[in-house]
Protein backbone atom coordinates (compact mmCIF):
# COMPACT_ATOMS: atom_id res chain seq x y z
CA UNK A 1 0.00 0.00 0.00
CA UNK A 2 1.26 3.57 -0.58
CA UNK A 3 3.11 5.19 2.32
CA UNK A 4 0.37 7.67 3.35
CA UNK A 5 -2.06 4.78 3.79
CA UNK A 6 0.43 2.99 6.04
CA UNK A 7 1.00 6.10 8.13
CA UNK A 8 -2.75 6.71 8.37
CA UNK A 9 -3.32 3.11 9.51
CA UNK A 10 -0.64 3.28 12.18
CA UNK A 11 -2.10 6.55 13.46
CA UNK A 12 -5.75 5.48 13.39
CA UNK A 13 -5.26 2.00 14.84
CA UNK A 14 -4.88 3.16 18.47
CA UNK A 15 -7.75 5.63 18.00
CA UNK A 16 -9.99 2.80 16.77
CA UNK A 17 -8.90 0.62 19.69
CA UNK A 18 -9.76 3.41 22.10
CA UNK A 19 -13.12 3.99 20.39
CA UNK A 20 -13.87 0.29 20.76
CA UNK A 21 -12.96 0.34 24.45
CA UNK A 22 -15.00 3.54 24.93
CA UNK A 23 -18.04 1.88 23.34
CA UNK A 24 -17.59 -1.21 25.52
CA UNK A 25 -17.15 0.77 28.74
CA UNK A 26 -20.15 3.03 28.19
CA UNK A 27 -22.60 0.30 27.30
CA UNK A 28 -25.06 1.23 30.01
CA UNK A 29 -24.67 5.00 29.67
CA UNK A 30 -24.73 5.66 25.92
CA UNK A 31 -25.47 3.45 22.91
CA UNK A 32 -22.92 0.67 22.61
CA UNK A 33 -21.92 -2.27 24.71
CA UNK A 34 -19.73 -5.33 24.70
CA UNK A 35 -20.63 -6.59 21.24
CA UNK A 36 -20.34 -3.31 19.28
CA UNK A 37 -17.14 -2.27 21.04
CA UNK A 38 -15.61 -5.71 20.65
CA UNK A 39 -16.20 -5.70 16.89
CA UNK A 40 -14.75 -2.19 16.55
CA UNK A 41 -11.64 -3.23 18.48
CA UNK A 42 -11.21 -6.39 16.39
CA UNK A 43 -11.55 -4.39 13.17
CA UNK A 44 -8.87 -2.03 14.47
CA UNK A 45 -6.45 -4.94 14.78
CA UNK A 46 -7.14 -5.95 11.17
CA UNK A 47 -6.20 -2.51 9.95
CA UNK A 48 -2.69 -4.01 10.04
CA UNK A 49 -3.63 -6.56 7.38
CA UNK A 50 -5.69 -4.13 5.30
CA UNK A 51 -3.21 -1.26 5.20
CA UNK A 52 0.18 -2.93 5.65
CA UNK A 53 0.40 -6.65 4.97
CA UNK A 54 -0.58 -10.00 6.34
CA UNK A 55 2.78 -10.71 7.91
CA UNK A 56 2.48 -7.58 10.06
CA UNK A 57 -0.87 -8.84 11.34
CA UNK A 58 0.52 -12.31 11.98
CA UNK A 59 3.32 -10.86 14.09
CA UNK A 60 0.84 -9.16 16.38
CA UNK A 61 -1.95 -11.75 16.37
CA UNK A 62 -1.26 -15.16 17.90
CA UNK A 63 -4.39 -17.23 17.37
CA UNK A 64 -3.74 -19.32 20.50
CA UNK A 65 -3.71 -16.21 22.71
CA UNK A 66 -6.93 -14.91 21.22
CA UNK A 67 -8.65 -18.28 21.58
CA UNK A 68 -7.66 -18.13 25.24
CA UNK A 69 -9.01 -14.57 25.52
CA UNK A 70 -12.26 -15.75 23.93
CA UNK A 71 -12.62 -18.41 26.62
CA UNK A 72 -11.56 -15.98 29.35
CA UNK A 73 -14.24 -13.46 28.29
CA UNK A 74 -16.87 -16.17 28.38
CA UNK A 75 -15.62 -17.37 31.77
CA UNK A 76 -15.70 -13.79 33.09
CA UNK A 77 -19.34 -13.46 32.13
CA UNK A 78 -20.15 -16.72 33.91
CA UNK A 79 -18.18 -15.78 37.02
CA UNK A 80 -20.01 -12.45 37.35
CA UNK A 81 -23.28 -14.39 37.14
CA UNK A 82 -22.09 -16.96 39.68
CA UNK A 83 -20.92 -14.16 41.95
CA UNK A 84 -24.50 -13.00 42.24
CA UNK A 85 -25.53 -16.61 42.93
CA UNK A 86 -22.92 -17.00 45.66
CA UNK A 87 -24.04 -13.83 47.40
CA UNK A 88 -27.54 -15.19 47.77
CA UNK A 89 -29.27 -13.51 44.83
CA UNK A 90 -30.42 -15.20 41.64
CA UNK A 91 -27.94 -15.96 38.78
CA UNK A 92 -26.83 -12.74 37.01
CA UNK A 93 -28.87 -10.61 39.39
CA UNK A 94 -27.29 -7.25 40.19
CA UNK A 95 -25.62 -7.22 43.57
CA UNK A 96 -23.46 -4.13 43.27
CA UNK A 97 -24.85 -0.78 44.49
CA UNK A 98 -26.36 1.53 41.84
CA UNK A 99 -24.16 4.62 41.58
CA UNK A 100 -25.48 7.95 40.31
CA UNK A 101 -27.16 7.68 36.94
CA UNK A 102 -25.15 8.65 33.90
CA UNK A 103 -21.85 7.53 35.37
CA UNK A 104 -19.93 4.32 34.80
CA UNK A 105 -20.83 2.94 38.22
CA UNK A 106 -24.54 3.38 37.60
CA UNK A 107 -24.94 -0.06 36.08
CA UNK A 108 -24.06 -2.31 38.99
CA UNK A 109 -22.72 -5.50 37.41
CA UNK A 110 -23.65 -4.45 33.86
CA UNK A 111 -20.29 -2.77 33.10
CA UNK A 112 -18.50 -5.95 34.22
CA UNK A 113 -20.69 -8.05 31.94
CA UNK A 114 -20.08 -5.57 29.11
CA UNK A 115 -16.34 -5.82 29.60
CA UNK A 116 -16.46 -9.64 29.58
CA UNK A 117 -18.60 -9.66 26.43
CA UNK A 118 -16.29 -7.08 24.84
CA UNK A 119 -13.20 -9.22 25.40
CA UNK A 120 -15.01 -12.31 24.18
CA UNK A 121 -16.45 -10.76 21.01
CA UNK A 122 -13.17 -9.07 20.05
CA UNK A 123 -11.24 -12.32 20.47
CA UNK A 124 -13.91 -14.33 18.65
CA UNK A 125 -13.88 -11.96 15.65
CA UNK A 126 -10.07 -12.10 15.49
CA UNK A 127 -10.09 -15.91 15.56
CA UNK A 128 -12.91 -16.02 12.99
CA UNK A 129 -11.06 -13.71 10.60
CA UNK A 130 -7.87 -15.71 11.17
CA UNK A 131 -9.64 -18.72 9.65
CA UNK A 132 -10.82 -16.61 6.69
CA UNK A 133 -7.40 -15.10 6.11
CA UNK A 134 -5.52 -18.40 6.39
CA UNK A 135 -7.85 -19.86 3.78
CA UNK A 136 -7.75 -16.96 1.34
CA UNK A 137 -4.06 -16.10 1.45
CA UNK A 138 -1.68 -18.78 0.23
CA UNK A 139 1.79 -18.86 -1.25
CA UNK A 140 1.63 -18.27 -5.01
CA UNK A 141 5.35 -18.40 -5.69
CA UNK A 142 4.91 -21.17 -8.34
CA UNK A 143 3.33 -19.01 -11.05
CA UNK A 144 4.83 -15.80 -9.68
CA UNK A 145 1.46 -14.08 -9.22
CA UNK A 146 2.46 -11.74 -6.42
CA UNK A 147 -0.06 -12.10 -3.64
CA UNK A 148 -0.30 -9.27 -1.11
CA UNK A 149 -0.29 -11.30 2.05
CA UNK A 150 2.03 -14.25 1.71
CA UNK A 151 1.94 -16.64 4.60
CA UNK A 152 4.18 -19.67 4.84
CA UNK A 153 1.73 -22.45 5.60
CA UNK A 154 2.15 -24.21 8.92
CA UNK A 155 2.76 -20.84 10.61
CA UNK A 156 1.47 -20.04 14.08
CA UNK A 157 -1.94 -21.38 13.19
CA UNK A 158 -0.34 -24.64 12.16
CA UNK A 159 -3.26 -25.71 9.91
CA UNK A 160 -2.45 -26.65 6.36
CA UNK A 161 -4.83 -24.82 4.06
CA UNK A 162 -6.54 -26.69 1.23
CA UNK A 163 -6.18 -23.49 -0.77
CA UNK A 164 -2.54 -24.37 -1.33
CA UNK A 165 -1.65 -24.77 -5.00
CA UNK A 166 -1.11 -28.41 -6.06
CA UNK A 167 2.65 -27.94 -6.53
CA UNK A 168 2.90 -28.23 -2.71
CA UNK A 169 4.60 -25.30 -1.09
CA UNK A 170 6.75 -27.21 1.43
CA UNK A 171 9.73 -25.26 0.10
CA UNK A 172 7.70 -22.02 0.31
CA UNK A 173 9.74 -20.33 3.03
CA UNK A 174 12.88 -20.89 1.01
CA UNK A 175 11.39 -19.32 -2.11
CA UNK A 176 10.18 -16.28 -0.26
CA UNK A 177 13.13 -14.24 -1.37
CA UNK A 178 11.33 -12.94 -4.47
CA UNK A 179 8.30 -11.54 -2.74
CA UNK A 180 7.89 -8.48 -0.55
Amino acid sequence: MPAPVRRYALAVLPLTLLTGLYVVAHGQVSPGGGFQGGVVAATALHLLYIAIDYRALRRVRSVALFTLADAAGEAGYLLVGLGALLSGAAFLRNVLPYGTTGTLASGGTVPLLNAAVGVEVAAAVVVLLAQFLDQAIVIESADGSQDQGHTPQGGASGRTSEGRTPQGQKSAPGSEGGRR
Binding site: G32, Q36, A44
Partner: peptide
Protein backbone atom coordinates in the same frame (compact mmCIF):
# COMPACT_ATOMS: atom_id res chain seq x y z
CA UNK B 1 -25.67 13.85 22.19
CA UNK B 2 -25.14 10.09 22.38
CA UNK B 3 -25.82 9.79 18.62
CA UNK B 4 -22.41 11.32 18.00
CA UNK B 5 -20.93 7.97 19.08
CA UNK B 6 -22.41 6.45 15.91
CA UNK B 7 -20.82 9.19 13.86
CA UNK B 8 -17.52 8.50 15.67
CA UNK B 9 -17.63 4.76 14.88
CA UNK B 10 -18.49 5.54 11.27
CA UNK B 11 -15.69 8.09 11.01
CA UNK B 12 -13.25 5.50 12.33
CA UNK B 13 -14.45 2.42 10.40
CA UNK B 14 -15.50 4.07 7.12
CA UNK B 15 -12.03 4.38 5.60
CA UNK B 16 -11.23 0.82 6.78
CA UNK B 17 -14.21 -0.46 4.78
CA UNK B 18 -12.97 1.38 1.70
CA UNK B 19 -9.38 0.23 2.11
CA UNK B 20 -10.64 -3.37 2.20
CA UNK B 21 -11.52 -3.00 -1.49
CA UNK B 22 -8.14 -1.43 -2.22
CA UNK B 23 -6.38 -4.31 -0.49
CA UNK B 24 -8.37 -7.21 -1.96
CA UNK B 25 -9.19 -5.81 -5.40
CA UNK B 26 -5.99 -3.82 -5.92
Amino acid sequence: PSYTDMALVLAVLGPVGTLVYERLLG
